[in-house]
Design a protein around this nucleic acid. Structure first.
Length: 1012
RNA sequence: GCUCGGAUGGUGGAAUAGGUAGACACGCAGGACUUAAAAUCCUGUGGCCAUUGCGGCCGUGCGGGUUCGAUUCCCGCUCCGAGUACCA
């Protein structure tokens, strides 16, 4: 029997689908282990080779843990609400549910073909009403909760209203919006509308008017983590700031807990650091400055209250609410002009241009809280409205931005730290001693900060304050394909819809309405009838919220649903939650660091606060698999002789260069006459997918594979007028007729060269000519590593690998590429090696076509090979160092092949160890070994150290740390005995040339070092 | 700018706890088998020098340090990658 991976894949995948050996048990005495992958958004493109990397790793762990006796929960599902399906729906009119369904089918087929051991009976889809019923339920809990800072946890609103009716809000220490004080009597006298309006200031899910990231092209608002450099993360459309009524989540209430919780997590340091930076805690003081001649005060946040005597001016953000109030008549026009200018600048421009200093003087002055000195108040766009209080006390001697501003506008720069050199820039160091600072003089900075805050608090002008960069998360999206927010409005006041799920209504078109409402504004039946708790025709009930939830809503709790996916009474039963607890190993991409991974922690802590969970972190251990990048071959040089009909026109020789930003740079070739043309070729692996010329023509090319003189033409699905496909040709073929090519060869060893024959045409001197040249045009490409993406023509599909080598080879090879967490370009260079390994493994069991395993007793060498592997693989899986496990398997099989080992006592346990990596071949051989049950029910073999004990060890003998010879000595010898043998050894004596060693270091079973 | 990673042969990458640098694999070169090719197998493969023999020297981005001994620890650089950015 020959190793036939395709047949084994088919056979065992069918068997697993039928017998479900990977089902997690609901009521088990076994210890649990929860291995979770980040579930995918099912895009139309399907999986590429990068996606399965993490899934393969987690699958290996899952299968291993089962062998180790754990009840393993290893589920998979789909994050199936989202923008692309909706965009596609807008273009085609197809319901997003339909395309989503189709995409899921593709994903499922591809995942099955890799042989993952998911428990598919637990699949979840965030767009399924039976799932989002609970997303909506959690939303209502968030709506019905406030954050008690005193108790440091979320509490039901009912407990808040109870306090209000007894004591008003004076005693409440809540994380909330600014709310005027009221008494119990006032509260009790209010009508419901007024109470509800007030409560919105306290609710964790709340409606408020706020500046949001508005993306006009997408017609929706976006959360901060969905905006990158002023553009939407999806689609890359410009984003602007807009004041809107919006649902938000008071995640800021959890800022400190989200920060503290990181310490106990086994997540990568870089990921924890990203979250820490995103939360952005800074300690300092909040203090108020009186504005001369006004009742209003300017409040500022500073991390350096010690530099208070270095304040020489203040700057407000242009949007600051006090600007219009305090600006003097003389300065009014200047200030207004500046505000107008600042508004016109997009965030993008503002960010790109951080060097330019700009601002305007308001004409107003504040009073220094200690000296009473007048401090001019300016506005400037380097102060952000959204951070701190939107105003700063400027200390030009201690802050570079303040320093630049002061320099630009000729404001004073008083020194407050001894020895500051202020002619070239500010002194931002936190080391140093205060000067010119009244009661702070002579104190070191850290001490002065404490003293300053104490004094401010004593005088009642300020207080110590911790500020966070983290913003509340905008929750509403003006989209169709998301969870409806279960809220109706009565006189503009929001109320919850308790009857869930509130299902997404059908609509005709998926665009916003003509009046600018979200797509749900197109639904005819989107009113709520209170009496019947039913949807009713618009106008017959209360209008329902038209925005939907963001993509991160469904993914913020999905790990809980897997525990009990079919429960209709709760998101998951208490029993299941208590048994499975949180995720033991979570595998996914680091791009979710400040989005999903923050939100899921937030919701977990929230649900813990309400008593629904016994833990407050979703995942104990998290591993980020590195991105598998694609390699795009880009033309670095192209030499073409453009032949016209009837003759060769060598004057059209041209040359171009594709630079790093994928732009084509024209380069002229000295001493060669003619017009210069440019072109770019994109291809993946062996096939060029596209040739675009700079003059707008795309060529179809017929390729000559010159080495074998066979012709190959590739057709394409593209609707481009001409189409290109190329094969590599051996470098030796290329007649390098242009001198620069040699320079290129020297610079880079990784280029490819080829020749193509063009049967398309080209534009020359304004005329189109059919191209008849054969084998004349030459190109040189350089590979460039970039993200694998459809638009870059560099996607490698796992299906191709599987159909050629089978799933086990793909699994092993992806692990063998390198450390799981490293980013690495995809290449198939080594795939033959892993395939060869599997065949060698198979051959251990077979003699010719016959299964031939003997029951003879194993030798010591065979046992050693086996047990070294048992231990190494076990250690490696715990560390997720899976590339070295694959190496170990190769070493072991090489040794067993050498030993001609075909013994059951060795091969059977080895098959179990390998089964988590290469399950198909393992199942087959397990069956051939006579087992009827799936190998996933086997037990991981026990490592026995005795088999690795050696009688002798080959000591490396080094002189001054440099190894010179080996001595085979018994391992039972003591250090002193080894030393005695070594110094008496003739070769050692010869090397010493009569000298006496100063010292001999012996580390038993490791090394001997003779110091001369 | 700041934060966090990283730098080892032609390539991907190994190297418990400071203890034989380069495991394993690819590629390449030579050989066997074959009409031929594929597949398979064998041998070699960090660099330089010597190869009539043993061998010798250098070598983990660069410069220092600690140590009997440093890819590993410490100090100072260079370069690359990722994240983040007027955050007061």
């Amino acid at each position: 029997m020959q190793y036939d991976p395709k047949e084994l894949d088919r056979k065992w995948q069918a068997e697993w689908a039928k017998k479900k050996p990977f089902a997690a048990l609901d009521n088990s005495e076994k210890p649990k282990y929860y291995v979770l992958d980040m579930f995918p958004y099912p895009s139309g493109a399907g999986l590429h080779v990068g996606h399965p990397l993490g899934y393969i790793a987690s699958d290996i762990v899952s299968r291993y843990k089962r062998l180790k006796g754990f009840n393993v929960l290893h589920p998979m599902g789909y994050d199936s609400f989202g923008l692309p399906a909706e965009q596609y729906a807008i273009q085609t009119g197809q319901h997003p549910a339909k395309t989503t369904e189709e995409n899921i089918a593709t994903y499922r087929r591809q995942m099955d073909s890799i042989g993952f051991s998911f428990d598919w009976d637990r699949e979840v889809r965030t767009s399924d009403p039976s799932y989002y019923k609970w997303t909506q339920w959690i939303f209502l809990k968030l709506y019905d909760t406030w954050y008690d800072k005193a108790a440091d946890r979320a509490r039901p609103i009912s407990e808040l209203t109870a306090i209000f009716s007894k004591e008003g809000n004076a005693t409440v220490n809540a994380h909330c919006d600014e709310t005027p004080a009221f008494t119990a009597n006032e509260w009790n006298a209010w009508d419901d509308a007024q109470r509800q309006t007030t409560l919105l200031n306290y609710r964790i899910a709340y409606l408020s008017e706020a500046y949001v990231n508005w993306c006009p092209a997408l017609g929706t608002v976006l959360a901060n983590d969905e905006v990158k450099d002023g553009f939407s993360e999806r689609g890359g459309h410009p984003v602007e700031r807009k004041l809107m009524m919006q649902w938000s989540m008071r995640i800021t209430a959890y800022a400190q807990r989200l920060l503290d919780g990181l310490d106990g997590l086994e997540w990568s340091e870089s990921l924890k650091e990203q979250q820490r930076n995103w939360i952005g805690r800074s300690e300092g003081a909040l203090l108020r400055f009186k504005v001369t001649g006004h009742r209003s005060q300017v409040e500022v946040f500073t991390t350096r209250p010690d530099t208070i005597f270095g304040v020489s001016f203040m700057v407000l953000a242009p949007e600051h609410e006090l600007v219009s109030e305090i600006t003097t008549a003389e300065q009014k026009s200047e200030v207004e002009a500046y505000i107008a200018k600042a508004k016109a600048r997009s965030d993008r421009d503002r960010m790109a241009d951080v060097k330019t200093v700009s601002g305007a003087f308001t004409g107003a002055y504040a009073e220094h809280p200690f000296t009473g000195a007048p401090i001019p108040i300016w506005i400037g766009d380097y102060v952000l409205a959204g951070y701190g209080t939107g105003a700063v006390m400027s200390v030009p001697s201690g802050d570079q931005r303040d320093w630049s501003f002061a320099r630009h506008f000729g404001l004073p720069i008083p020194s407050v730290i001894e020895g500051s050199e202020l002619s070239k820039g500010a002194n931002e160091s936190k080391e140093g001693v205060l000067e010119n600072s009244d009661f702070l003089n002579g104190l070191p900075v850290k001490e002065a900060i404490k003293r300053a805050i104490a004094k401010m608090e004593a005088l009642g002008i300020g207080k110590g304050r911790i500020n966070y960069r983290l913003r509340d998360a905008v929750f509403g999206r003006q989209r169709y394909w998301g969870e409806p927010i279960p809220i109706y409005y009565k006189d503009g006041i929001p109320y919850p819809i308790e009857k869930l799920p509130l299902e997404l209504p059908a609509i005709e078109k998926y665009l916003p309405t003509e009046t600018g409402e979200p797509p749900l504004g197109r639904a005819d039946i989107w009113n709520w009838d209170l009496a019947t708790e039913q949807l009713v025709e618009n106008g017959k009930g209360y209008p329902i919220e038209m925005s939907t939830m963001p993509g991160w809503a469904g993914s913020s709790w999905y790990f809980l649903r897997y525990m009990d996916p079919h429960n209709t009474d709760a998101f998951a039963s208490k029993d299941e939650v208590n048994y499975w607890q949180n995720v033991d190993l979570y595998v996914g991409g680091s791009e979710h660091a400040t989005g999903h991974l923050l939100y899921v922690r937030f919701w977990t802590k929230f649900l813990k606060d309400l008593g629904h969970l016994p833990f407050d972190e979703p995942a104990k251990k998290l591993v980020n698999q590195g991105m598998i990048q694609g390699v795009s071959e880009k033309i670095a040089r192209y030499d073409g002789y453009l032949n016209t009909i009837g003759g060769t026109d060598a004057t059209a020789n041209f040359y171009y260069f594709v630079n790093a930003s994928n732009e084509i740079e024209k380069k002229s070739i000295p001493n060669l006459p003619g017009e210069r043309h440019t072109a770019a070729i994109f291809y993946s692996n062996d096939v060029i997918t596209q040739l675009r010329s700079a003059w707008g023509r795309t060529y179809e090319l017929k390729i000559k594979e010159t080495a074998k003189d066979s012709e190959a033409t590739y057709s394409s699905k593209s609707d481009l007028p001409f189409r290109t496909s190329l094969l590599h040709v051996p470098i030796s073929f290329v007649d390098n007729h242009v001198a620069d090519l040699d320079a290129l060869r020297k610079d880079r060893g990784d280029f490819e060269e080829g020749v193509f024959v063009c049967t398309g045409g080209y534009w020359y001197k304004g005329e189109f000519h059919e191209h008849l040249a054969q084998g004349q045009d030459r190109f040189t490409t350089l590979p460039e590593v970039e993200k694998m993406s459809k638009s870059k023509w560099n996607v490698v599909n796992p299906d191709d690998i599987i159909s050629k080598y089978g799933a086990d080879t793909l699994r092993l090879y992806e692990m063998f590429l390198g450390p799981l967490e490293d980013a690495k370009p995809w290449n198939t260079n080594g795939i033959e090696g892993t395939y060869r390994f599997l065949r060698k493994f198979w051959n251990l069991f077979h003699a010719g076509d016959a299964f031939a395993v003997s029951d003879d007793a194993p030798t010591k060498a065979e046992l050693k090979a086996l047990h070294a592997t048992i231990r190494k693989v076990e250690d490696d899986i715990e560390k997720l160092s899976l590339n070295t496990s694959v190496s170990q398997f190769m070493i072991c099989v090489n040794e067993l092949t050498e030993l001609k080992c075909n013994k059951r006592a060795i091969l059977e346990p080895l098959t179990i160890v390998l089964s988590s990596f290469a399950p198909h071949i393992a199942e087959e051989l397990w069956q051939q070994l006579g087992h009827t049950d799936s190998i996933s029910f086997a037990t991981y073999p026990k490592f026995e150290a005795a088999h690795l004990v050696e009688d002798s060890f080959s000591y490396p003998i080094s002189f001054n740390g440099k190894t010179k010879l080996q001595l085979e000595l018994s391992t039972s010898l003591s250090a002193a005995e080894v030393e005695a043998i070594v110094v008496a050894h003739p070769e050692v004596i010869a090397r010493l040339e009569g000298a006496t060693p100063k010292k001999v270091i012996v580390v038993v079973k490791r090394i001997v070092n003779v110091v001369v």
